[in-house]
Design a protein around this nucleic acid. Structure first.
Lengths: 216, 216, 216, 216
DNA sequence: GATGAATGAGTTTTCATTCAT
DNA sequence: CATGAATGAAAACTCATTCAT
């Protein structure tokens, strides 16, 4: 029943989402305390249950909202239009836009913190688990497209490639969030190229060949 | 005070550590329940508090024990003895030994699961946080040695290199644990070379140069 | 104030009463959840409080409506017109008609389920308690008339006779509801005679005498 | 884990069971509030959960204790030893003993109040449901024995006989509990004979014949 | 040395009811 | 007429920790 939410006063929505995002990012889904979220946001416990079905509903709504904002601002894209020439540069451009968005919408930085913790959710088929899976599927599509184009290596198990990709994604996200304040404008400009290059180091077909060449 | 612990019957120690490792790996430090650990291990709650200060003490002791076993079995090594020629091959050899150790000591598999969750611990200066920091410091030493030798790239912030390294470490660990059963003997043999190659793709000085060459 | 209720759209009334009857029958008065009732009926919470004072008001209105329907369909009767000859056969006929009514008005089946749970209500003078008392008073009138006519035994405390009667009433009601589907037409035809005979076994003056005869 | 319970101080046990029995008898299983029970008994919530698994465990333990006391004091009996001559008089004797027991152990009077509410439990296979079923099975055995001996009627569905029996059992129990204070010694003496006679009125083979004779 | 017993503060969720619009 | 929105109190249950013995 997240329809009700749309009628909630914008300011109170902001306060709630802010507290919730901070709490989820800090303690993960299971560890997060509704009480703490409510205390910070000033909302009453029963009001929260008026707008959300349960803890999981609050969390997934939060994630979905964040993703919706991200996608709208950055602009989604279709893996099928990627070509050998545009493959890496497309992601560089997306990265550039993502940075711009986060730079404006402060609270979105929490998104990563909330999101990546989902990996370990033991409850099969849980709402939180499904979100992570959806993102993983998306990365899978991209990796497969890259392999079809011959720009992504095929000499390693696909699951390993995908796990490594998501993991690097998380690392860079965390690193950027943690060091944002210390970065000069020039650093920020150079980041998309440098960071996408890391994915290329890891995933490109050349990387695979280089390795076997080095084999004694 | 872990002095008392040494007088605890070996079998009861094993039972306790086994349950605790499973619980911590499954639910993380905060999410783990002492009650469940005690139920599985058959130890009494007050005994636990006789041997350990609190939940955190149990956890850190567990981690330290695991690391001690790992180091003893694998054989620690001194970063300073690494040379340009031996740098990567040394880790390949260490990797090979680590696999052998884990293959024998089943419960050590849980180690990674417990360990990596510590990254996000918000409590500054907490016991659990310090453990992660210690491991991070160790990786730092290695990266710095690599840079001094010219085999590890210096074109990226050191903290980013280290975070990426630890992240890839975690990913590979998880992947191996998750897919261990499906792997043929030949796969396992090839793993050290292939996986260390991934670190090389990410970290080697060549990787840094290859990237800038590609710049338009 | 049930005045307002009369202006409520008939279809919405039906929907509300149906959900409410099911909920009360399933969980009793205390256990019933207004939220569930409203969810099923589609009515808004504040509308309910516009038409009813509170939970108890909804319940008692529901009971009274049901009783009104039952009485209108079955035809009330005056205990004073009963004679020695017509006493038992009158109830047999009423029973027959009651079955016919319930056979048509499906939801009335819930009536018993709601009603009998009231016995145990601890709150003295509560609205729900008064309903049960009213029904009890009615049974009292009948038993007293039977005793005046000499067809109902007088060798036991009146309260015991009445409690037993109401209890048998409930048991038969529940049994019929539970086994209705399995009964052949012939079974249903024979039921009024057989079931009223059970009351006769319990209450008739002969029963009282038979017992004392058996006394050693 | 009701073993721990045995080591609980007798006085605290008594206080707990007394509050719990009163609460369950007054509000039924679902309606009963652990908080109220704890408040009355002075026990802490966590202590209760130290001695019992959950609410249901407390309840079933309470029922089982009560039944154990009743059976020990009254003396169980084997339906198979009943004969045509001893059938009814046996129950008269049991009834007499039951009254004596309850007369001494005040709190046992709550037993019926707790027990009979179980009938309506909708949760199939629940702990509380199973208790009621067990008692019902016991009554079934007795009815079947009576039918085999020819002293219990066979002209009605067995389920109806059993339901009526249990219902009459409940009614008498409640009546006795409610009126105990008002009864003279002579009344109490006469009760077993009179009350068992009611079962006889309802269940005896003669009752069945008398009815069909009366058919017009 | 070792433990059984006790607890306060915490968890998520549901309740019937009210009030401003 | 009608309802969306808000709430305090209560529900069952679990937590890590302590203390007397």
């Amino acid at each position: 029943m997240s329809r009700r939410l749309e009628k909630l006063d914008a300011e109170r929505q902001r306060r709630l989402f802010e507290s919730a995002a901070a709490e989820f990012a800090a303690h993960g889904f299971d560890g997060a305390s509704l009480n703490r979220i409510l205390e910070k946001s000033g909302m009453s416990k029963s009001s929260l249950y008026y707008y959300f079905d349960d803890k999981a509903d609050l969390f997934t709504t939060l994630i979905e909202r964040s993703m919706a904002v991200l996608f709208k601002e950055i602009g989604g894209f279709d893996p099928d239009v990627l070509t050998t020439d545009t493959f890496w540069s497309t992601f560089e451009e997306l990265y550039r836009r993502a940075i711009a968005v986060i730079d404006k919408n402060g609270w979105l930085v929490q998104f990563g913190g909330m999101f990546y913790r989902l990996r370990g959710d033991p409850k099969q088929g849980s709402a939180t688990g499904r979100i992570f899976q959806a993102a993983r599927n998306w990365v899978t599509l991209i990796v497969e497209r890259g392999q079809a184009l011959g720009v992504v290596r095929s000499d390693l198990p696909q699951s390993l490639l995908i796990d490594s990709t998501m993991s690097l994604l998380e690392t860079l996200d965390r690193w950027v969030v943690a060091h944002w304040g210390e970065l000069a404008a020039a650093d920020k400009d150079a980041m998309p190229n440098k960071h996408i290059a890391l994915f290329r180091n890891l995933l490109s077909a050349d990387a695979g060949r280089a390795v076997s060449d080095n084999r004694p």
